[in-house]
Design a protein around this nucleic acid. Structure first.
Length: 588
RNA sequence: GCCCGAGUAGCUCAGGGGAUAGAGCAACUGCCUCCUAAGCAGUAGGUCGCAGGUUCGAUUCCUGCCUCGGGCGCCA
């Protein structure tokens, strides 16, 4: 129960008392802080249905609500706005309640639901590149936020580990090292535990094999054959493939670890391979899958639909499965094995048609029962300064590893230039630089809406000032330092007193908005609401800090109250940052 | 051609049917004898792409148009 929702309930029951819809009593933070702290706009909406003057309704609602001891003033303004100011006593009381709640006022959501989140999608043999950045950051944040609200969540990396690229790699490795035991069809194992290839080898070979597949039909045929052999279980191929997967997972998880992005399961395309055959057969026998031009497809548009969308390709005319097939089988896995109640895909918006097709096919084929939620949370692209997807000078997608190293270097340069933390141990200093860089990247990403493509400008990261991740770290660190100093002077927090200054009231009101930001982030699948909130809260604290000099305050009760407020602010900031996947250093 | 998304301050972007549309950067002006100036305060900057519609009220919802980006059966 939050301050805002308490008021909404209060107004709701007043509307109900007048025989009007209680949802009209919704209360929101005021858009005109000069006129009030909160506002209720329901009277204007009610006026039409009730065929009455909105100001009259507002007046009647106000006269009921006014009696409540928590309300300081109510004013009717304009066409029928009710501007609300709560008493300082109640504001203090509500803040104490928040401080006493482990979830800081966020109400727990349905703990029965089990959400499967898909925000990985890296491929074996390919390093994580900038295209993986947004999905990882946003998905991770959403996972943490859902979990904070008490939901059961499983993050699946969904590795691309089973397509024709695997066949291509097998062929290319054979070209380079034909003597390897894995290619000897007469050999009966066991195979070496040591991988014959490194992740570096795979990254080198992958583009070569991809290029040859394009230009040499015979090579492409060999790759397809190898893929089929792999998938049908040829032991040498399986063993070699396992090495491909292992070395790739090691490299991939290293970068995810650096990003502090985690997955609960490392499933992938290969883990649903055995499901595909039976699934296709079942869809065919149901009449959902049909033969068309030598391929097997699922029609996903009803004939009468005005805008037809193309059918989903299940089996290509060469007998191979399409990647939509794998995605369909993955849904089945998520329903049956993972026992999910829904799956949310944090994936590039450009794949929206693909997901539309897959989701429709999953419904038609009964793979996803009706209550199972299927949702594509569209992610915008990371663009360069020219507004097109970010590329290196060679035209490749920049590797995440390189990008993060650049950011770290910028953070160090920035610290050097400002002479920050120059008396700290070198190891701590570089740890701080890393956290500052990560905060900059993540906040820069998360403060944009999920669906919008934004311009990633390294230059802009060279200054960690203004609305940036480091600004938020700075607030948390400032408070840590403040609390430490207070402790050294044996000053402790006390009960939160009714606020007497505007900056203090503004801070307490902002603290009370945390649950609304979290709720919005969850329902809209949009962590930018938490990011935006955290920035606003930080600003409110900095203004408070500027005007209320805590440690030199003579009144011990006031000092204790302010210290408690500072401590609570820190908790909310650190919690918000944690929901964004951003870690805070002890000092900076 | 059809579908999806975007168009808001010089730049990068927020914005929940409500009042006077916000932030950061860049520009200009102040504030470190005082808990971290990675900070705070202030000035300036807008026909919210265009035209209609719904509504007491539209940047927000609907329709059309313009511009840009993306997607559209055998790549994944």
């Amino acid at each position: 129960m939050t301050l805002r929702s308490t008021l909404a309930e209060l107004f709701g029951s007043a509307f109900a008392e007048l025989g009007l819809d209680p949802t009209l009593g919704d209360v929101v933070p005021s858009q005109r802080p000069d006129l009030g702290q909160f506002q209720c706009n329901g009277a204007m909406a009610a006026a039409r249905a009730a065929k009455r003057n909105p100001r009259d309704i507002a007046a009647e609602v106000a006269s009921i609500v006014e009696a409540d001891a928590r309300i300081a003033t109510l004013e009717i303004a304009g066409p029928g706005f009710v501007n609300i100011v709560v008493t300082d006593e109640y504001l203090a009381e509500a803040t104490s309640l928040t401080a006493g709640d482990e979830r800081l006022g966020v109400s727990p959501i349905d703990g029965e639901a089990h959400w499967i989140l898909d925000y990985g999608g890296p491929n074996v043999a390919k390093e994580l590149h900038v295209g993986h950045l947004r999905t990882a950051i946003i998905g991770e944040s959403f996972k943490r936020t859902l979990r904070f609200a008490g939901a059961r969540v499983t993050g699946d990396v969904h590795l691309g580990d089973w397509g024709v690229q695997m066949g291509q790699l097998l062929v290319e490795v054979r070209n380079e090292q034909p003597e390897l035991i894995y290619f000897d069809e007469t050999y009966r194992g066991p195979y070496p535990e040591e991988s014959p290839v490194t992740i570096g080898d795979l990254q080198r070979l992958y583009p070569i094999s991809a290029a040859k597949t394009k230009s040499e039909p015979a090579y492409a045929a060999a790759a397809r054959l190898a893929t089929v052999d792999l998938q049908s279980g040829r032991p040498g191929y399986r063993a070699l493939w396992q090495h491909f997967r292992d070395v790739s997972v090691e490299a991939i998880s290293q970068v995810y670890d650096d990003l502090d992005v985690g997955f609960d399961v490392w499933l992938g395309e290969s883990s649903v391979h055995d499901r595909i055959g039976p699934m296709v057969e079942r869809l065919e026998s149901m009449g959902v899958a049909e033969e068309s031009d030598g391929a097997v497809v699922v029609y996903v548009s009803a004939p009468e639909e005005e805008h037809q969308i193309p059918p989903l390709m299940l089996v290509k005319s060469d007998g191979g499965y399409a990647y939509a097939t794998t995605d369909l089988a993955t849904i089945e896995e998520r329903v049956e094995d993972l026992e999910g109640s829904g799956a949310i895909y944090f994936v590039d918006a450009r794949q929206s048609l693909h997901f539309e097709q897959v989701f429709r096919a999953a419904r038609r084929g009964g793979i996803a029962p009706d209550p199972f939620v299927l949702e594509h949370a569209k992610i915008g692209t990371v663009n360069g300064l020219d507004g097109t997807p970010l590329k290196t000078r060679d035209g490749d997608l920049p590797l995440l590893r390189d990008l993060l190293a650049d950011i770290e270097a910028i953070a160090i340069a920035s610290m050097d230039a400002k002479g920050l933390a120059d008396d700290y141990p070198a190891a701590e200093r570089s740890a701080i630089a890393w956290l500052v860089g990560m905060a900059a990247v993540k906040f820069g990403d998360l403060s944009n809406h999920r669906t919008s493509s934004y311009i990633f400008d390294l230059e802009r990261f060279s200054s960690f000032e203004g609305k940036t991740g480091p600004y938020l770290l700075y607030v948390a660190v400032r408070i840590t330092s403040l609390l430490k100093k207070a402790g050294e002077q044996s000053i402790g927090p006390g009960p939160i007193l009714p606020p007497a200054r505007d900056v203090e009231r503004a801070l307490l009101l902002k603290i009370s908005e945390f649950p609304d930001a979290v709720e919005r982030a969850i329902t809209l699948r949009a962590p930018n609401h938490v990011a935006e909130y955290c920035y606003e809260l930080s600003g409110a604290f900095n203004r408070f800090y500027e005007q209320c000099h805590i440690l030199s305050e003579a009144d011990p009760d006031l000092r204790g109250s302010w210290l408690a407020i500072a401590g609570l602010t820190r908790r909310v900031v650190v919690t918000s940052l944690d929901l964004l996947g951003i870690s805070v250093p002890e000092r900076m």
